[in-house]
Design a protein around this nucleic acid. Structure first.
Lengths: 248, 248
DNA sequence: CGCTCGCTTGATGGAACTCAATATAAGTGG
DNA sequence: CCACTTATATTGAGTTCCATCAAGCGAGCG
């Protein structure tokens, strides 16, 4: 597997492998979308030297809430979920992370949320301390992280509106539309739902059954259509989807 | 009123009033808790020169979602609510801001949320552009803003768990406990609820009636007791309050 | 006093949850 | 390749919690 090959390349010792790491970063899939976009090829060496590629199998937990915070990473390929959990098992997915996104609890000794791979995921990992050190040296990197964190805060606040005030139908329609925008941006005509029904429910603050019923409703109304199973769908009437959100 | 006096002091022209502004900042109530805490008295002059004190009456809107983003501020006294609203009027309070908190949409041309004073509120306002300029000059300020933004993101995510997965009783108990912690930190024995029942409902994703019923329930169970009206209460059994959150 | 405004309380209905059964898909080993 | 298992999704029936609608209460105020 190519990921594994890359992983071993990352294990070349610092200094000796500077040429190799530079090459690795230049050809990286998220060179221009992750935080790295804020750095020149030259400066990137500093970050590259403390980074390690790592592949996380689907379903595996990257870190538990309460764990010592000593790791952060850029998502290169795949998807992560960030979850908050209650003692009795109730769970809320508070964030979904995709290629180019950053994950980690900086400046804190403890992870506050659990991070799990929802599909096999390729990460570029840094020791938290090392990353913080790089952050001190490169103001443009810190600025980009600040902007991204502010954008995440805005997303979180929009999701609060959804969780606090929207109906099940509106939440499901909104989720499908989010995925649709993402797919369109990536030039794909079809929407592939990256999570299970249960994870959709945990993301939307609903139950599996309610999510399933709402999807069935959208399908019955000829707004969406599933192809090849439950995970891939085609948007037949995006206007109607948007109306479900705006109206009522 | 002292706020008004301070407001006129802030209108002393730049340069000529440097001594005055320095004095204003040194004696400011949030000198050590707001972002200013990251700056030395000396450096603070730069920020002070572009800041203006302003008093917002209760209920007044500071800025609408969609407005041009040209203002940011530190809360000095009082409280603000940040709200997200739907076309049909459904509203969600996505943040409550208290003295020391920062408000504003940096690096964006548009405000994404509406900001309103919930009580008469004293602000230290900056033009967004000017504040961004200061941010470029003082890395320690930027670092503190980054940390605060990350903390806000964590808060937002915890609220997602509440909105998505907790019962009405748990949400109300959790809100009272939050206020209780804040009061204890301030050395007050009594909890003063800074918002109306309707605003509590908008914060918790419930209706006024449900909030009222849950408070009645807590009162009937001798967990809380109201004194002098509906806005001030005493916590009789904080352990029981905490159990409502952890259990079930 | 009578008005308004914010809060509480009551009665009722409905949207989403829970419990349970069925269906579909994906492996697994014989 | 096909029974068997397991995991995931859908569908149905009944229940519950919260929203809605409506009335009543109490404080502040002209």
């Amino acid at each position: 597997m190519s990921q594994v090959a890359v992983l071993s390349a990352a294990r070349v010792p610092d200094g000796a492998g500077s040429e190799t790491t530079a090459t690795r970063c230049k050809s990286c899939a998220v060179r221009t979308t992750a935080l790295c976009a804020s750095m020149t090829d030259e400066d990137l060496t500093a970050l590259s030297n403390v980074g390690r590629r790592r592949v996380i199998p689907a379903g595996q937990i990257l870190s538990w809430a309460g764990d010592e915070s000593n790791l952060c990473a850029n998502v290169v390929h795949g998807a992560l979920k960030v979850t908050s959990t209650m003692a009795d098992g109730r769970e809320q997915i508070v964030g979904l992370l995709f290629p180019g996104d950053f994950v980690g609890q900086l400046f804190e000794d403890e992870m506050s949320m659990t991070v799990t791979a929802v599909v096999e995921t390729d990460l570029c990992c840094y020791s938290r301390r090392a990353f913080e050190g790089i952050l001190d040296q490169f103001p443009r990197l810190e600025r980009m992280l600040l902007k991204r964190t502010m954008a995440s805060l805005n997303d979180a606040r929009n999701r609060m509106l959804s969780l606090g005030r929207k109906s099940a139908q509106e939440r499901v329609a909104g989720f499908i539309l989010e995925l649709y925008e993402r797919s369109r941006a990536a030039g794909e005509s079809q929407v592939s739902i990256p999570v299970s029904r249960g994870e959709m429910a945990d993301y939307l603050g609903l139950t599996i059954e309610t999510v399933s019923r709402q999807l069935t409703r959208l399908r019955a109304a000829n707004i969406i259509a599933f192809v090849n199973g439950d995970r891939d769908c085609r948007i037949l009437d995006s206007l109607e989807l948007e109306q479900i959100l705006d109206q009522s």
